[in-house]
């Protein structure tokens, strides 16, 4: 994925009221990922990646699930640089994603 590339996600209309909190939690999640990476806490990174996998697609954000899988796999492999790239990609995605409801 290229940096600052625009993404659009279509979310069910009846979930619209949940999205502001969902996005706020994702931004907090990015910070938690950074802290965990800084302290090389791979178990927490694995858990966070696993959680991202589950929640992303469930809300319609496939990209979050994909990044989550990479974080989870990277944590199992102890791949710090790989995880750092994932976090950067995640941060970029969250700040640029466009959401429409239908």
């Amino acid at each position: 994925m290229k940096k600052n590339r625009a993404h659009t996600v279509i979310v069910q209309k009846d979930l619209e009221d949940l999205i502001p909190v969902f996005m706020s939690n994702r931004r907090k999640e990015i910070e938690t990922l950074r802290v965990a990476l800084a302290s090389a806490d791979f178990e927490q990174l694995r858990q966070l990646g696993h959680r991202m996998r589950g929640v992303g697609n469930s809300y319609g954000f496939e990209q979050i699930s994909e990044i989550g899988k990479q974080v989870e796999d990277g944590a199992i492999a102890g791949d710090r640089s790989g995880i750092a790239s994932c976090i950067a990609e995640y941060s970029d995605y969250i700040s640029s994603v466009q959401i429409s409801y239908e």
């Binding site: 009846d14 909190v21 939690n25 959680r51 589950g54 929640v55 469930s58 809300y59």
Partner: peptide, 16 residues
């Protein structure tokens, strides 16, 4: 469910 976002999503589906 330990993920609050996941929990509320599931709850919303069932409440409907």
């Amino acid at each position: 469910e330990d993920d609050p976002d996941m929990a509320i999503l599931l709850a919303r589906m069932l409440e409907k």
